[in-house]
Design a binder for these strands. Structure first.
Length: 208
DNA sequence: CAACCGATCACCT
DNA sequence: GGTGATCGGTTGC
């Protein structure tokens, strides 16, 4: 794997908004023995500390939110609507809350395994619309990468010991667009959603 | 201990 | 564009 660099833990030891912008274009990697999975991060949302009423951290430090208040660069995985998992990365040092929700990936490698994990026919991978179904949306990308709370919550995504990692392949993203976050009711007006403008794999209909 | 609610998706019209 | 599925975490009684 040439030209691919690890992302240091200090990358995540910053404000969620800063981490959000710089995460765009980075690569999420699942190292499973037979089929490594890779996807480029194209859409994220920042969730702030106890002041951000839309953030789980607003509930304070509980067993559920411990990862958000813990060290930076850890996977915070939660279960939502009784159906889906969502993947976040913790930001800021221990004792301070903040995280970034991963909302969409552009699939790069292991697409057939992702389709299998999602129960999709591999025939659909021949079209862009079909490939978009793999990882466009927080619940979808978790299913494609086999991400669950039981398996991944608390993992250090900057550690070479982890099978779930964030890497930098040198990709230079285009223009970053900011909008309000999706699917929340509280603090819904804050512009904390970030995505690569024009990228096909951004969730929803909006890509520019 | 019971009730409530949600950082979603797939399928329906 | 509308809505049901489905369940863990939190809160209030």
């Amino acid at each position: 794997m040439k030209g691919i660099k690890r992302v240091p833990e200090s990358f995540f030891d910053r404000e969620p908004r800063t981490v959000s912008r710089e995460l765009l274009g980075k690569v999420l990697i699942r190292n499973s023995p037979h089929t490594p999975l890779r996807g480029r991060i194209v859409e994220v949302e920042a969730y702030l500390g106890t002041d951000d009423l839309a953030a789980h951290a607003a509930a304070g430090l509980t067993a559920r939110t411990a990862v958000i208040f813990g060290p930076p660069g850890r996977a915070y995985v939660y279960f939502i609507y009784g159906v889906h998992y969502c993947l976040n990365f913790s930001c800021l040092p221990s004792g301070e809350a903040g995280c970034v929700l991963i909302r969409a990936l552009e699939p790069l490698a292991g697409l057939e395994a992702m389709a299998a994990a999602r129960g999709m026919d591999t025939d659909r991978l021949t079209t862009t619309a079909g490939r978009k179904q793999l990882t466009s949306g927080p619940g979808r990308l978790c299913q494609a990468f086999g991400i669950t709370r039981e398996r991944d919550n608390g993992k250090n995504v900057t550690s070479s010991n982890s099978d779930l990692r964030v890497m930098d392949d040198g990709f230079i993203g285009g223009k970053i667009k900011e909008t309000a976050r999706i699917g929340i009711r509280k603090s819904a007006d804050l512009p904390l959603r970030y995505f690569l403008e024009g990228n096909t794999f951004v969730s929803g209909n909006r890509s520019g």
